[in-house]
Each structure stands twice: as structure tokens, then as C-alpha cells.
Design a protein around this nucleic acid. Structure first.
Length: 267
DNA sequence: ATGTCTGTTTCCTA
DNA sequence: GTAGGAAACAGACA
């Protein structure tokens, strides 16, 4: 589930509910979710800090903190990754605990809950720049902020299949399986096309379609499954292309379930 | 019961 | 550099 648009939704949840407010007790229900330091240490570092202007890079959500109301946000920074099934939920304090609520952050008006069924990823804490770099240092530029030039430069220098390169977080950060299929369908490029095989017009198109797609999806906080989107048809066994009604193709590309239109996206 | 699948990432081998 | 498989995890489903 969580790709760039979803995490952007989680960022808004954090911003609307907790920005500028002070964290109370931090409860770690599942110690396995806290990575890189002891859960009790994590809770001690975060409790009493003011959350400031939540940010997102790729699929990571960053919660910078400050010691006082008027301070600018800085270290420590809480870093959350949602793996395949994670989410960030804002609930009233008396809302019954969900079975997959792994960590809760108490605030005056409610609580922020890190909810995740599979615990593929988790929550880190960066107390200084070097710890931030250790977690985020290998990420490429955020997919929504990358320029067309940078997109081309970072993806063209490999002979891999384009889909594989686009999902590589060290090249471009934020795109997952759904986003990439949707973007490639809109750009009319076959997912297994070699990166070295895309021309300048192709990069322009890809960038423009990516921007539009991500803007709309980020606004929704998810990749919409609207009927005019490829994503709206990918779960149907006999899905057809919403643009040309050709039967959609389904297969494995870069080791992942991939859906494309054989007519719009010729090999 | 058993095996297969899944919107992610990382590590290992060829 | 690149591709493929397996693993981390927990559940749904046939």
C-alpha cells in the first residue's frame, strides 16, 4: 500500500493533528518495530518534544521535533517507514486499540498510531545528522520534486528494465509497484523497455505524466482506483484498458506483478 | 493442513 | 552492473 501518495497522506495526518503540539507518553506495544535503539530509550527521547512541520522524502515520513513551542524543528527526528501494510492513524485517546497498533504517540487531543500488520519496516530515531544520513543517505531525490533533467540523468544510465529502475529508491525515491504501472501506462511506455532505450521525448513525457499522476494521487492520499485510471482495473481478471478497451496484459516485470496495455504500451 | 499470493526492502548468488 | 531468488513478517484465500 504505502507509496509516495499514501505517505503524503500520512504526512497530512501528522501535520493536521500534531504540528506544533507536544508529545506525551510514547507507548511501544511491539518492541520489534523500534529500530536501531532500545524502545525505552526511543520513548524517552520523544516524550515532551514538540512536533514541527512533518516532512516526507520518498516513502519516509519525518517528524522533526523541538524543545519549545517557538523553536524550529530539528533533532531528534522520528523516521517512519510503512513497509507494505503500514499506516499512520489519528485517533481519540479512548478509541480501542487496534490489533496492529504497534506504537502510539500521545498528544493533548488524541494520539498518533503507527499501525502495521506485517512488520517489514519500522520506526527509527535520528538524534543528529549522521544518524539521519545513515537511514536516508542512499535515497535518490523525491519523485515528486525531481526535475526532468535529473530524472533522465538518474534513470538513463542503466540498462535495466525501466520499471525496475523507477522502483529503485536510490535512483528516485517514492515510487512503488502501483505508481510505476500507472505512470508508464500514462506515458505509453512498456514496463520492460530498457532505460537506455528511452529518448528525450520519452523522458519529457514520463516526467510530465509522473507529476500529474503523483499530484492527484497525493491529494487523495492513495493511488485512486478510479475507472479512468489503470489502477482502477488492475484487480479485475478480465480488465480492459480504460483508454482503448484492449484487454490488459498481466505478468511479472522486475519480479513484481505488472499490468499494462499491450496496445498503448507496445513492446 | 498446506501452499500461494501480496502495494517493500535487503541480502545473497550467479 | 544486472537479474533472480529468498527472507523479514502476517495475513487472506483456495
Amino acid at each position: 500500500m504505502p507509496e509516495l501518495p499514501d505517505v503524503e497522506g500520512f504526512r497530512r495526518v501528522a501535520a493536521e493533528a500534531a504540528d506544533g503540539t507536544r508529545a506525551g507518553p510514547v507507548r511501544v506495544r511491539d518492541p520489534q518495530v523500534i529500530r536501531g535503539l532500545r524502545p525505552a530509550t526511543f520513548a524517552r527521547w520523544v516524550r515532551g518534544r514538540y512536533v514541527k512541520a512533518p516532512r516526507r522524502h520518498g516513502k519516509w515520513l519525518l517528524l522533526p521535533t523541538a524543545g519549545t513551542t517557538h523553536d524550529e524543528g530539528g533533532f531528534p527526528v522520528v523516521l517512519l517507514h510503512f513497509g507494505m501494510t503500514g499506516m499512520l492513524v489519528w485517533s481519540p485517546a479512548d478509541e480501542p486499540r487496534h490489533a496492529h497498533d504497534r506504537v502510539t504517540f500521545e498528544f493533548a487531543h488524541g494520539q498518533l498510531r503507527y499501525r502495521d500488520m506485517r512488520k517489514l519496516k519500522g520506526i527509527h530515531l535520528a538524534r543528529k545528522q549522521s544518524e539521519l544520513d545513515a537511514v536516508l543517505g542512499d535515497l535518490g531525490p523525491d519523485a515528486y520534486r525531481v526535475s526532468v533533467t535529473e530524472l533522465r540523468d538518474r534513470l538513463a544510465g542503466t540498462r535495466r528494465q525501466l520499471k525496475s529502475a523507477m522502483m529503485d529508491q536510490s535512483r528516485i525515491a517514492g515510487l512503488g509497484n502501483l505508481c510505476v504501472d500507472e505512470i508508464l501506462w500514462r506515458a505509453r511506455i512498456h514496463p520492460a523497455r530498457r532505460s537506455t532505450d528511452v529518448d528525450d521525448v520519452g523522458w519529457q513525457t514520463l516526467h510530465q505524466r509522473m507529476r500529474v499522476m503523483l499530484r492527484q494521487a497525493a491529494r487523495a492520499g492513495r493511488v485512486p482506483d478510479h475507472r479512468s485510471w489503470l489502477t482502477g482495473h488492475r484487480d479485475e481478471p478480465d480488465g480492459v484498458c480504460p483508454r482503448c478497451s484492449t484487454a490488459l496484459a498481466r505478468g511479472q516485470v522486475a519480479g513484481r506483478t505488472t499490468v499494462w496495455c499491450p496496445a498503448c504500451q507496445p513492446d
